[in-house]
Amino acid sequence: MSKPLILVTNDDGIVAPGIRALVEVAATLGDVVVVAPDSPQSGKGHAITIHEPLRLNKVNAFPGIESWESSGTPVDCVKLAKHVILKDRNIDLCVSGINHGSNASINIIYSGTMSAAMEAALESIRSIGFSLLDYSFDADFEPAKPYIRKIMEYMLARPFQHGYLLNVNIPKLASEQIRGMKVCRQADARWIEKMIEGRDPAGRPYYWLSGDFVNNDHAEDTDIWALENGFISIVPSMHDLTNYPAIPVLKDLE
């Protein structure tokens, strides 16, 4: 029996330590192909490139692993994998990450990591986005690896009919401190944003986005609760943004 084909991508760029850790796990489960941005693309969301050509270069980023870097966004990378690099092969699983920083709660809509996974899900590919709650470049991914492998094995073993998408966030804890995994919902939280103004050497104003993450949803079935209490959060996600309860309310517009 042939090994499953696993596509690995991210938004931190092909040289980020997080994607190296993810490739190491994926390589124990199947044939791996990496297609990732050639530079950091954090916060790109579901952006795609339409006003300039995309560049694609084969690189030796991971020993023994077919690897490509693209000038595009994380979503562009998945499109290039699906329609160019692997156009004649069936992708069994797409994994994105491991992101340096949280993609829990509202962060999912800004995340290039999760948007890449969602793009694969739109193509009916089982997909997982992995994020570690540590923004540092030298983050320790070792405690997360056994859980990442378990989740990937679970997804590969089940013939989901459509592109199943999981948003997995991992607390910054030592192995013995991680209490397990929780399947949960996305917390209703948001960013209270502010623009920090400065002046460049020519005296012209510039603005730097900042803000505070505020969570007013303290129920025990949310991803934020799970992470704050030492659990890995697993949120089944989807692209459908329809506000279903509003449909009957708005029927009088017809």
Rank of each mutant, 00 (worst) to 15 (best):
L80D: 02
I98W: 02
P205Y: 03
W225D: 00
M181Q: 15
Q177R: 11
G129R: 00
I48T: 11
A26L: 07
T73L: 00
Y206W: 13
G30E: 06
Y164T: 14
W225L: 02
M155R: 03
A27R: 15
S102N: 01
H162C: 09
M195K: 14
T9D: 09
I109A: 10
S39M: 15
R199Q: 15
S237E: 15
N167S: 15
K3A: 11
K87Y: 00
M238F: 12
I98G: 01
V249W: 14
R20W: 04
N167G: 14
K87M: 03
V15G: 04
V59R: 07
S96W: 04
H218Y: 13
L156E: 04
A117P: 05
L166C: 07
S127D: 06
K58L: 07
E119K: 12
L7G: 03
F231T: 07
G101I: 10
I234C: 08
N167Q: 09
N103G: 06
L7V: 05
K145T: 13
L22E: 08
N216I: 00
E220H: 12
Y207F: 15
E220S: 14
G230Q: 05
D12V: 03
N90M: 03
I148R: 02
A121M: 07
F62C: 01
A219C: 05
G43Q: 14
Y164L: 15
G211M: 11
A187N: 02
